[in-house]
Design a protein around this nucleic acid. Structure first.
Lengths: 242, 242
DNA sequence: TCTTGATGCGAACACTGTATGCATCGAGAG
DNA sequence: CTCTCGATGCATACAGTGTTCGCATCAAGA
């Protein structure tokens, strides 16, 4: 028996072998981060919580990712890959193609409500492979419709800005909804008194609220989005007709 | 002389009288928060740093504000007050009025780049007095142009979504620029190699970059915004004409 | 003069992102 | 087989965060 009380390294205390679980990797980290964000929202993502989900220590992630900022850039580019940009086909069908593209982008943003929050911070400054690929395809789409490259670029930016802008306000609401644990009806019922009071001196807002209050909220949002999208497409169309 | 070494309360050690400086208040806190955000950006805002700027302790703020979230809601509504929504006038002049409104909103977002970041998190869920007032005025504007209340509401949402969406990506870039301490030319020169490489396999993106690279970035952004805005207005004009 | 409700704030708690240094591993070299 | 070495995992530590709690201090009213 040793005189000193140094902790004796024991076979039993030894940590399990490394390779009993799949090794950490950039891809695995990013994939798990997306899952965590989808399930628990943006502020639930910390290096510690992500590490735990991967059966790893928080600081282990730093071997594969420069830091949280880089992780978020990777994660955003990852979900950009889910967007579907139609191939440029019949020029006459550009309007439907552009609409499909917008709806696809919107679907992605609503599937991952945290994206809208993150875009405001990280921005599109980082040119990930998915973003560049999708952008190139969108440019091709607008070009095939008859736009010059210059106008195609502006049209693309306009469309993205609109979809992201709509996504920002919707996503914030959806995040609150998701974390409230309530059904949308319950949440709205709770919010209603404060809302009624806030708009009581504003007849137009008040009437608008009242009209919308008992309709299906998801459908209202969908109609709202489609309405604006159609106006932009109208605008592009008059532009195409010189 | 006391035997124990308890710190003897001394007249000299006494804290200065409370009212030698203006008392803390919600308004003063919000105003200083806006100043801090404008000068140092979103992540420089902490309850401690804000308290210090007000010659107060961090926790003192909690007497006037429920927490950081509420503070941010107040701050966002505060800057909404800077937006100028034209009075509904000549129905024929609705297009210019709507454009003025959009430019005013855009100016506000670019003056306070942190707003775009915050909208993604706080959302427009909180109906502050300024937001409700401005919304009511925008509805009036679109109604006077000939839209039904229902369509006026959709038009307003579309316009806001577009401006905010454009603001999101620009503001993120502007924040990076502001904190880099470099001139925009310097910053872009540093970013250029990586950007060139990222788009090397995408001919349309590459050509677009090249065309824009040596122009005044501010003007490029302005043109981009105006282009989309005009398409939006075109779309609504064709809608108004049935 | 005494009381009372409002206000400021120091200390503490549970978090966060991340730098550092050490333990451990797998695979290749001799 | 043994030895070595770069890659990988991670415990510890640090500075900074939002927020709670309880105490000290104040201005004003009774």
């Amino acid at each position: 028996m040793p005189a000193d009380n140094q902790p004796v390294p024991s076979v039993w205390a030894r940590r399990p072998r490394r390779r009993e679980q799949p090794a950490l990797s950039r891809d695995r980290i990013v994939a798990e981060a997306v899952r965590l964000l989808d399930e628990e929202g943006l502020e639930a993502l910390s290096m510690r919580s992500l590490g735990t989900r991967l059966n790893a220590g928080a600081t282990s992630l730093y071997r594969h990712v420069a830091g949280k900022d880089e992780l978020i850039e990777l994660v955003v580019d990852e979900v950009y890959g889910e967007m579907r940009v139609p191939d440029p086909g019949d020029p006459a069908a550009w309007r439907k193609a552009a609409a499909d593209c917008a709806h696809s982008l919107r679907a992605m943003v609503l599937r991952h409500p945290w994206v809208a929050s993150v875009l405001g911070q990280a921005g599109l400054a980082s040119l990930g492979p998915n973003l560049t690929r999708q952008s190139e395809r969108m440019l091709a789409l607008f070009q095939s419709a008859g736009f010059t490259l210059d106008e195609a670029d502006q049209a693309m930016n306009t469309l993205i800005a609109y979809v992201v802008g709509m996504g920002v306000s919707e996503a914030a609401y959806l995040s609150v909804l998701a974390r409230s644990g309530q059904s949308e009806q319950e949440l709205l019922a709770g919010l209603r008194p404060a809302a009624e009071q806030a708009v009581q001196d504003h007849p137009r807002l008040r009437e608008g609220y009242r009209a919308r209050w008992d309709r299906d909220p998801g459908q209202v949002r969908e109609e709202n989005f489609t309405y604006g999208l159609e106006r932009f497409l109208d605008g592009f169309q008059t532009r195409l007709a010189r």
